[in-house]
Design a protein around this nucleic acid. Structure first.
Length: 420
RNA sequence: GUGAGUGUAGCUCAGCGGCAGAGCAUCUGACUGUGGCUCAGAGGGUCGCGGGUUCAAGCCCCGUCACUCACCCCA
């Protein structure tokens, strides 16, 4: 084999593509009911868009970005996530000059240079939603319940909605100080990574999975206990409204986001039934300072992203029916084949999925093919049918048939009656 | 970046020094004009790649690449 796709990037083709389309369609339907409009963003941006927003010291920026220099000498990057691009676009096009809040969604590929494994690719797809201009925790609750509806409609269950608040620039310094005070005394008992993180990004200590570290940090101060008045009320209000909306959730104070731009609400949806360790199917949070940092007005934002590959893994088992053609037209002889082709053409113009045989083949093998591709009905045009201008339309599943004239109108009507 | 496992037909895999195989899938026929069942046959291979050992290497050895899984981190 001469060419293969690159490591960590994959083709998506039938039958999997049907699951992708189903999930995209369900999402679009629900976004519409919640007033979200689609926005299509470039997959490539100035590197600075990401380094400034995601954070210079995050893993994404430090080692996972597809960054290169273009022919004009600019540093450009394949987007590792969607929010930064969205905010750039939002500010660039003055989208805040529309009734507030503004709600957008997008679907598309993201890129991170990592070692692939189950549920993790280098090119992976996200369905994202972003809301700008809503400060109230009611919006946080609405966004999370919309996410819940999407996942439920797709057919996923056994999901855990985990929620926390990571505070704001007012309360975070006090919390980090408290955390560092607690850890500092026993820093020697933590793993190398944790010791490194202690100075760079102490919140990350809470996410370490090394058993000894988990033990050592037991009893460490929790973020949600050090929230300022505003952040505390926001979290309480979110919990209240989630209960009103009937979304069950758990508070997970150890939830840490891999991006620096989050404030207040952060949440993650985990699959309890996923076999691999990549069990986060969607994640999001509030980013109240980001629009301003991108040179726009001081507007709050909140959003989430669904990991397509991860929900596909879970949804694959519940994939059901795939559609076959409405009618397969068999023909015997050149004149008959020409008739079949013309008929198929007219049927297609009327919205019927019609297939014909393009190669000379025995009726048996044509029937076989009709069966294999899942045709709902079949019609045979031979010498006799051509002469009388009538034929038998046969429903493949039931075996029932009815006589029709060889006109697209009659066939379409008969099809409706015979196979729906 | 670190560690482990696996590379043989389109797919799932067997073969473990001695002619490159099975099941499924595809195509054809048995059955001039009605599919699904059955039977027979056909097509399809750089045994990942390179080197070494051997009279002889999918098989053993070395290297390399790819894939998978896990760690790190994340969607």
């Amino acid at each position: 084999m001469k060419y293969k796709s690159l490591k960590g990037v994959h083709d998506i083709y039938p039958p999997d593509i049907f699951i992708w389309q189903r999930i995209e369609n369900i999402s679009r339907d629900i976004f519409r009911n919640y007033g979200y409009r689609e926005i299509r963003l470039p997959i490539i941006e100035s590197t600075e868009i990401f380094t400034r927003s995601i954070g210079e010291t995050t893993d994404i920026v430090e080692k996972e970005m597809y960054t290169f220099t273009d022919k004009g000498g600019r540093s450009v990057t394949l987007r590792p996530e969607g929010t930064a691009s969205f905010i750039r676009s939002y500010v660039e096009h003055y989208l805040y000059n529309e009734p507030s809040p503004q709600k957008f969604y997008y679907m598309g590929p993201m890129f991170r240079y990592e070692r692939p494994q189950s549920g993790r690719q280098r090119q992976f797809y996200q369905i994202g939603a972003e809301v700008i201009g809503a400060e109230s925790a009611m919006m946080d609750a609405e966004v999370i319940s919309m996410l819940s509806l999407i996942l439920e409609r797709i057919g996923l269950d056994n999901l855990s909605f985990e929620i926390t608040s990571i505070g704001c620039p007012d309360c975070r310094p006090a919390y980090t100080a408290a955390l560092k005070d607690y850890i500092r005394e026993k820093i020697e008992s933590f793993c190398d990574d944790c010791r490194r993180r202690f100075d760079i990004n102490p919140l990350r200590l809470l996410d370490c999975k090394v058993p000894s570290c988990i033990k050592e940090r037991e009893g460490s101060p929790a973020v949600i206990e050090h929230l300022c008045g505003g952040c505390g009320e926001h979290l309480e209000s979110l919990k209240h409204h989630l209960r009103i909306l009937g979304v069950s959730f758990v508070i997970n104070p150890a939830l840490v986001r891999g991006l620096d731009y989050y404030t207040k609400t952060a949440f993650e949806v985990k699959s309890m039934s996923s076999s691999g360790s990549q069990n986060a199917v969607a994640a999001g949070g509030r980013y109240d300072r980001m629009v301003k940092e991108f040179g726009g007005p001081d507007l709050p934002g909140i959003g989430f992203a669904i990991g397509m590959e991860r929900i596909i893994q879970l949804a694959r088992s519940l994939n059901d029916e795939f559609e076959g053609p409405d009618i397969f037209i068999c023909s015997l002889g050149d004149d008959e084949s020409a008739k079949a082709l013309g008929l198929a053409n007219r049927l297609r113009q009327k919205g019927v999925w019609a297939e014909v045989s393009h190669d000379k083949a025995s009726l048996r093998s044509q029937m076989n093919r009709a069966n294999r591709i899942g045709a709902k009905s079949v019609i045979v045009i031979g010498e006799n049918e051509l002469k009388c201008n009538t034929a038998k339309l046969k429903a493949m599943k039931s075996g029932e048939s009815s006589d029709v004239s060889l006109s697209a109108d009659d066939i379409a009507t008969a099809l409706n009656k015979l196979v729906g």
